[in-house]
């Protein structure tokens, strides 16, 4: 087990280096001088040089990358934004709770939708509700999240005034200038983003759960359970669902991890100042430290969720445990 964890950690470090190196390399393949963009006015070549020196972009890429690693390891700092010179650490720490709120809330919501609907559809294939569910899945998968978000916000926010059109409120305490804060305001503002975020995933998960449950229902051990005299409910709960959920757990872990790297579209539509928004702003302003910062955060999320899923999987599935 220790060997396993050690191997995983080593692999995580390799992955981390690869991801950040690729980010640096791609950034410098784009024929744009970040110093010119940050130089603040119609810059003469001398001024661009000064800014490049200030930002450190006048050094070779490998030097900059080494500096990035050194800062990360020794100072635990991701550096400072090119565009507004703010600390990348604090930008990410400020944005992370927003994205986490969105993603975890959305995941809970979409599982609440997808589990019953998927299981019902699997148990009653071709029933009216199954057909309705499958049609909605198609819509959910096909519709663009921005469209869904704008529609929800227009209908429930602007027209019916049931929910805020957009915006974010802190779960704990309020921020100066925002008249809202605390769990109720937070929830109230998150409902539509969660819905938007959940629609797409719920669609995927309904389909996935339906398929898995249907497959599991055909398993021999399910027939064994019935042959033992177990009731249908017992068969479902004890024998079908747990097995059908194994692949779902993996997917869920990865989807959450990736979304934590930035749920760009939903955050954009609802003006949520999360990591996705941060990343988009960073990319559109060629703000390397912000881009790398969000990439680092996302890869740490993916790597650690991977590990978490593995552990969880081993807990659920004894076949993995000893392997």
């Amino acid at each position: 087990m220790i060997r396993y964890i050690f191997r995983r950690l080593l692999w995580a470090i390799v992955l981390f280096l690869a991801v950040t190196i690729v980010t640096y390399v791609i950034f410098y393949l784009i024929p744009v001088d970040p110093a010119r963009l940050a130089a603040g006015r119609n810059p003469t070549p001398q001024e661009v040089k000064n800014v490049a020196h200030y930002l450190g972009t006048d050094k070779p890429v490998y030097y900059q990358y080494g500096l990035f690693l050194k800062r990360l390891v020794i100072d635990h700092s991701l550096g400072y934004s090119f565009a507004n010179r703010q600390s990348v650490n604090s930008a990410i720490f400020a944005a992370a709770p927003v994205t986490i709120s969105l993603v975890l809330g959305g995941a809970i919501l979409w599982m609440f939708i997808a589990l019953p609907v998927g299981i019902y559809s699997a148990l009653h294939p071709r029933s009216r509700l199954d057909r309705v569910a499958m049609a909605s899945v198609l819509v959910g998968i096909s519709a663009h999240p921005v469209w869904i978000g704008l529609m929800l916000s227009y209908i429930f926010g602007f027209r019916l005034e049931l929910f805020p059109i957009q915006g974010y409120c802190n779960l704990k305490g309020s921020i100066a200038g925002q008249s809202c804060g605390g769990p109720i305001d937070w929830l109230y503002h998150m409902v539509l983003p969660w819905l938007t975020f959940a629609v797409l995933y719920a669609a995927f998960y309904v389909r996935m759960i339906r398929t898995n449950v249907m497959e599991t229902l055909n398993e021999d051990y399910v027939r064994t359970a019935r042959a033992k005299g177990a009731s249908e409910i017992r068969v479902m709960v004890q024998h079908v669902i747990r097995n059908a959920m194994l692949p779902v757990v993996t997917m869920l872990g990865m989807d959450i991890a990736i979304a934590l790297g930035g749920a760009v579209l939903t955050e954009t539509v609802f003006g949520l100042p999360g990591l996705g928004k941060l990343a988009i702003t960073g990319i559109s302003t060629f703000d390397l430290p912000i881009i790398v910062g969000t990439v680092v955060f996302a890869s740490v999320m993916v790597i650690s969720f991977n590990l978490l899923v593995d552990i969880l999987y081993a807990w659920v599935d004894p076949r993995i445990r000893l392997a």
């Binding site: 602007f158 957009q166 200038g177 008249s179 539509v269 609802f270 003006g271 949520l272 702003t281």
Partner: peptide
């Protein structure tokens, strides 16, 4: 009060 610094323009217009 600049209550938000990253609003979507469509949403800003509605608001």
């Amino acid at each position: 009060d600049y209550t938000q610094l990253s609003i979507d323009p469509n949403q800003a217009t509605l608001s």
